[in-house]
Lab assay of single mutants.
Amino acid sequence: MQIFVKTLTGKTITLEVEPSDTIENVKAKIQDKEGIPPDQQRLIFAGKQLEDGRTLSDYNIQKESTLHLVLR
């Protein structure tokens, strides 16, 4: 499924993921596309910060959901 990741600069990254993918996994995909190390990434969905060990389905993230990427 496709999800979108919006950065603070207003750029939107499109990722191909599975509901069973972990947040860690998603961060690795963002690193592949954008070169941002996962340890600098914070992903936010519905106002919650997403934890590395959880999966997209844990957070009920469905196709075409938009996550927000904050760098630390």
Rank of each mutant, 00 (worst) to 15 (best):
51 E>I: 08
63 K>C: 03
62 Q>S: 13
15 L>Y: 03
4 F>M: 09
68 H>E: 09
9 T>F: 09
64 E>W: 04
52 D>M: 10
24 E>C: 03
21 D>W: 12
15 L>P: 00
24 E>W: 10
13 I>P: 00
65 S>E: 08
33 K>A: 10
36 I>T: 12
19 P>T: 11
40 Q>G: 14
65 S>P: 02
22 T>M: 08
28 A>D: 08
42 R>A: 09
44 I>Q: 09
7 T>R: 07
63 K>T: 07
2 Q>C: 02
58 D>L: 04
22 T>I: 10
47 G>V: 03
22 T>L: 06
57 S>F: 10
39 D>V: 04
47 G>W: 15
13 I>Y: 13
37 P>M: 15
38 P>G: 15
39 D>G: 14
3 I>R: 00
66 T>H: 15
54 R>S: 12
16 E>L: 07
21 D>F: 10
33 K>T: 08
9 T>R: 12
50 L>S: 01
13 I>G: 02
33 K>Y: 11
11 K>I: 11
5 V>R: 00
63 K>S: 09
44 I>H: 15
29 K>Y: 15
8 L>D: 12
65 S>Y: 06
3 I>T: 01
11 K>Q: 14
22 T>F: 10
5 V>H: 00
27 K>R: 10
29 K>I: 09
28 A>S: 10
5 V>C: 02
52 D>Y: 04
41 Q>P: 02
63 K>N: 05
20 S>I: 09
43 L>E: 00
9 T>Q: 15
30 I>P: 00
12 T>Q: 11
53 G>H: 08
50 L>C: 02
53 G>R: 12
34 E>H: 05
3 I>H: 00
2 Q>W: 08
9 T>C: 03
71 L>E: 14
70 V>K: 05
23 I>R: 01
69 L>Y: 02
12 T>I: 07
34 E>T: 09
6 K>Q: 09
55 T>R: 10
41 Q>D: 01
53 G>A: 06
67 L>C: 01
51 E>T: 07
40 Q>A: 11
8 L>M: 14
49 Q>N: 09
61 I>F: 02
17 V>E: 01
48 K>R: 12
14 T>Q: 09
57 S>D: 15
44 I>E: 06
69 L>V: 08
62 Q>T: 11
63 K>E: 08
41 Q>A: 10
54 R>I: 07
31 Q>H: 12
45 F>N: 05
42 R>G: 15
48 K>F: 14
54 R>V: 11
1 M>R: 03
50 L>K: 00
23 I>W: 01
15 L>Q: 01
